[in-house]
């Protein structure tokens, strides 16, 4: 009942609204950066915030199917926008790391990518997102066929795990946030495994 009502309310919402809403945190970040609201080390604050937003949208993408299976609330129409927003924030996150943090010091950047597990995982996640973003159009789905497209987009699961591990391996000690993100990702993937097993058995 409630699910149907929610679906009814969402039906007239254009996906453009999701894109616009997804850019609000960026606008806020720019405003904070311009007004000195990001504390003493704004570069790190921006870098972390962008990465965090990317992870949040990624978790959002993964939540859409389980939400539909178990509550009937259908957000599938917004999934592409949420996924692309995640990729957009990953691109910004990577750009800030390259340009403002490491300042195109390629020797250090190369060594970091090759030697630092958390950066290696983060780069892999970024690279794995590229085919997903490239095939995010209706035309791509048509050309590939629905089943091949669906198979390819299971890469999202890998991207989410890599992204969450990237965060976890970067911190000192064991603060709660990265553990919570990884927990969310594993929980949402676990729901899929649970459903697949139940259906298969």
């Amino acid at each position: 009942m409630i699910a149907q009502r929610i679906n009814g309310v969402l039906r007239p919402v254009p996906t453009g609204f999701v894109y616009a809403a997804g850019l609000v945190p960026l606008a806020l970040l720019v405003w904070q950066a311009a007004t000195g609201g990001l504390g003493v080390d704004p570069v790190k604050a921006i870098e972390h915030r962008l990465g965090e937003l990317a992870l949040q949208f990624l978790v959002g993408v993964l939540a859409i199917s389980p939400l539909r299976w178990w509550t009937g609330v259908n957000l599938i129409r917004f999934r592409r926008a949420i996924g692309l927003l995640s990729f957009f924030y990953v691109c910004l996150h990577l750009s800030v790391w390259l340009a403002l943090d490491l300042q195109f010091r390629w020797a250090e950047i190369g060594a970091d990518i090759a030697k630092r597990p958390y950066i290696t995982l983060g780069m892999l996640a970024f690279v794995a997102m590229i085919p997903l973003a490239v095939t995010s159009t209706n035309g791509a789905i048509r050309r590939m066929g629905a089943s091949a497209w669906t198979r390819l987009h299971r890469l999202t699961y890998l991207v989410a795990v890599l992204g969450a591990l990237h965060f976890l391996l970067l911190v000192k000690a064991w603060p709660p946030e990265p553990i919570i993100y990884l927990g969310c990702v594993l929980f949402l993937l676990g729901l899929r495994a649970f459903r697949a097993l139940r259906r298969g058995g």
Partner: peptide, 17 residues
């Protein structure tokens, strides 16, 4: 987990080397 070759000086601005 990270290089110690260089450092960012806090408070030197967005584009300080």
């Amino acid at each position: 987990r990270w290089s110690q070759a260089s450092e960012r000086r806090i408070g030197s601005g967005f584009f300080a080397p």
